[in-house]
Amino acid sequence: MSKRVRLCREDDIPDFCAQGFDPERHGFDTIFVVRQDRYYYAYADVCPHYGDTSLPWKKDEYLDAAGDNIVCAAHGALFNIRSGLCTSGPCKGESLRPIPVNCEADGYLWITLED
């Protein structure tokens, strides 16, 4: 079973920024979305290094200073924003788990979560 969840308005995420979300109300962010112009990339907030720790050192701090890479703050792993592939760091060659995300006609971002 899968379910669709409305996250936020498209423009709620500033351009070239990232934002974490807690769509299943765990009390902490479990996914994050990176915006690059009209494109949105969503991933599970889990670093593949240990497989059960989250990435940011502070809420929404998922990107490096230039906004070029996703960063895991635990050990500095870098991930390609579009593919989720780790290009440097402990989990080099592994990838973040992508979450399907769409901009709908209602102006909101929707994600699809698997049970």
């Binding site: 990435l55 940011p56 050192w57 701090e61 960063v71 895991c72 703050a73 635990a74 050990h75 500095g76």
Partner: peptide, 9 residues
Amino acid sequence: YFKSPFGCN
């Protein structure tokens, strides 16, 4: 331990 912007904990 805390994650940090130093690329390490």
